[in-house]
Design a protein around this nucleic acid. Sequence first.
RNA 1: GUCCCGUUCGUCUAGAGGCCUAGGACUCCAGGUUUUCAUCCUGGCAACAGGGGUUCGACUCCCCUACGGGACGCCA
Length: 471
Amino acid sequence: MAVVTRFAPSPTGYLHIGGARTALYSWLFARQQGGQFVLRIEDTDRERSTEESVQAIFDGMQWLGLAHDEGPFFQTQRFDRYRAVVQQLLDAGLAYHCYCTKEELEALREQQWANKEKPRYNGKCRDGAEPREGVEPVVRFRNPLEGNVVWQDAIKGEISIANTELDDLIIARADGTPTYNLTVVVDDIDMGMTHVVRGDDHINNTPRQINIYQALGAEPPVFAHVPMILGEDGSRLSKRHGAVGVMQYRDDGYLPEAVLNYLVRLGWSHGDQEIFSIEEMIQHFRLENVNRAPSTFNTEKLLWLNQQYIKSVEMSRLLELLPFYLQQAGIDTAEGPSLEAVLSELRERANTLVALAESCRMFYQDFDEYNAGAAKKHLKVSAAEPLTMLKEKLAALANWEAEAIQAVVQQTAETLELGMGKVGMPLRVAVSGSGQSPSIDITLALLGQQRALARIDQALAYVAARAEQAR
RNA sequence: GUCCCGUUCGUCUAGAGGCCUAGGACUCCAGGUUUUCAUCCUGGCAACAGGGGUUCGACUCCCCUACGGGACGCCA
């Protein structure tokens, strides 16, 4: 049988990192098995579902490159179907109307809690209940009273829960709308799901759903419950941990392939391998190798991976991604050296695309101020002499190439009998504004003769002003 | 509280009873390369939650305890 998996988020927020990993695992499994991957939006809670969240989920999935083969399906467009199934269960005596009010149920729960019992519906209306004036009934599923629900979870192994732990769950609200546990089952049956990969916060729903499958005469799919992702401090992921939507990772300068690589290795591994191409993930991923314990998110490692990708992706990929960040940073690369030449020098020293874009700035924009520490240390009065000589020699240079520039810097140091630090560093600060840049000859070569000379002039003026002040 | 799930370096993980003197990666530390920063290279610190079994032998199997997480909605 052809494999069918799905990702079925409820649109009540952005696509967060945990959901993204679940989606990835589900997608990888489908791809590997040559199966279908379905996207389904579980929006039966009209109160909390929003249009923006739906869009955020689409955006996140697209950014990550997790394409679906079918859907997106919206549960709100399938209400007729759910209603029919509820009626079917009612007719078969597998479900019943319940007239207990929310208040009564609330009181019951509180009492049970006080008695240190597990709060459960007491089955008051299970064996027939009189309609009550002014109370629209809900529909409850008649859960088996005895026995255990047992299944072989593809990740967690055998899980067994006693029916006595379960109660008669509501499958249709008083207003007639269906609830989650009913809709998932109906959809997963209708959509031919063979494998349900989802967060392990659903483990407790699974036995109820298996009972519904049985009531409906359907074979349950294989379940694979993936553990949660914890925040950096080991507690549940929340906004405070930057458990923001995946699109925030784009904005922060992460490559989607790095995020995917990080997520696939968070809770899963293939020997000692750290870097995986999409093809390798698809080839090696196994549900049964997914870790059973929750794992803690670690930004340091994500950053390292991101850096590995920035260093090693095709230049064309970098050129495709960077304009977004350059624009965000307000850097126009129309005038100046070729972006490709600049990037090939800078890519090894940035761990995010935001930082990479920022490091490009000096090649395209002039500046008025120096990094305070760098200027204080290197643009001293004593720097005037080497800078002046460098300026003269560089101005006289006919072929503006790294090799020739390097020779000039070296000659200057030798002539003045100064160490490289006393010549190279002032020059670096002069042209970059900070103490950091690629090697100085290449930096100058990229910058261009005119711009380089202008910046040396600017630095000389700065040094002169400083000398004036010192007096 | 009840039920379910889990527990190997700080973090992600390898480990399918002897290959374990517990391996790799990130971080960190110490060196080296680099006139800077970053990269890169070399080396180092660092873990089987605790207690009982089973076994000739347990990180690996079983039980208990502790701790962590989840669920207990007319949310999904």
